[in-house]
Write a protein that binds this DNA or RNA. Structure first.
Lengths: 210, 210
DNA sequence: TTGTGTATATTCACTACCCGGTATACATTG
DNA sequence: CAATGTATACCGGGTAGTGAATATACACAA
């Protein structure tokens, strides 16, 4: 089980990430993490001050790659801004079809640690979500949404986190497609009206629910 | 601390509800619940088979009153269907301004128990959310949304649960207002286009984001 | 080259505590 | 009596975290 190709600290972090994602933070003991990492608990405590420290470090490490993934999905999708954002949701829908998919780790962590409001992991989760929202805002600004860019980013965040929650609850990825369509429509309406009222205003977009 | 005006079982349930809501299920011990209820642990176990049973019973008991509250808020709000639904979100925004507000217990429970997918409390949470969605669907059907009623209900659920998640994460109730406006707009668009294209089609609704 | 010092990295064995749940006995009430 | 409800005291097991010793690696001096 032990894999010496990675430095110990990274192995621990990776083991923790997998277990936290699968079962949740409070359901996983540091003994379980140490065992999965092929390491004694004592060496885990050499690399991390506490379980809380491990949780926080884990979440901080996920910030960058998570945002990068969204950016990649955005760029890889063909079409206008609305379709490119919808592409993110559709990639998420694809992920959610995997039985091992367990929603958004940032959201879940902030729920699990709700009685510790200042916990560094919660702070990291908030920061991550704000970064995503900020990135969306810059996308819409570049697309010419003007003063609507920031409110629009907030709406997309509501749909994104709503879809994370609902899909996780019902284990039904089709809600992610509903979110994709809704997001695309909200964006298209804003961008077309910003560009001038002669454009493709309100050709009704059909629903693609299940 | 002991309040004999309520039967023991109800007192336990109420104590559990308060503590679960405040700190989360996994963070609360049955000792803490028993103490808050002014009862020994053994008495608690006389009335409930296990902690899991207590959690499930608690969530089942919240289903009815929660839906009733939404219905009341809907009926008490003046205006068309879109505004009445937005009224629910605005009441929620008001609740969220209280520091003790801790989001949606159904969502939170399903996150905390993610590693126990068949847990009766999770089943109850799913059922509750489906009941709310079904109620929304019937509202939109009555309002003449036709085939759009069910997809529209799904969209509102995305916004609702999204707002629960985002407001809880950032502790910023203004997202609930954004959700209110977004929901109203989605509903108004559907209902007006269903009623015929001559009506109040697309008077732009201003955003109320701070 | 050999010896010594020092910082890093790791292990085994352990503590102190808290958790869900229970055995048993006693009290109250119809 | 019989049913219901409550109390004291306890259990086995899991939890986060630690003490003390050891292994490894590299720096530098004799």
């Amino acid at each position: 089980m032990k894999d010496r190709s990675q430095p110990t600290r990274e192995r621990i972090l990776q083991a923790a990430g997998g277990l936290f994602h699968r079962d949740g933070i409070r359901a996983i003991s540091v003994d379980a993490i140490a065992e999965k990492a092929g390491v004694t608990k004592r060496t885990l405590y050499y690399h991390f001050r506490s379980k809380d420290d491990l949780v926080a470090t884990h979440l901080q490490a996920r910030d960058e790659p998570n945002l990068a993934l969204f950016k990649r999905w955005f760029e890889e999708t063909q079409g206008d801004t609305a379709e490119k954002i919808a592409g993110i949701f559709r990639h998420l829908a694809q992920s959610a079809r995997n039985a091992k998919w367990k929603g958004c780790g940032f959201l879940r962590t902030s729920v699990e640690l709700i009685n510790l409001p200042g916990h560094p992991a919660v702070v990291a989760a908030r920061a991550h979500k704000k970064r995503v929202e900020g990135w969306l805002g810059s996308i819409f600004t570049e697309a010419g949404a003007g003063n609507d860019a920031l409110p629009l980013a907030r709406q997309i965040m509501l749909l994104l986190d709503g879809a994370f929650a609902v899909v996780l609850l019902h284990r039904d990825p089709s809600y992610m497609e509903t979110a994709a369509d809704t997001a695309a429509r909200l964006i298209a309406d804003r961008l077309s009206s910003a560009a001038g009222s002669e454009s493709s205003l309100h050709e009704r977009r059909p629903f693609a629910d299940q």
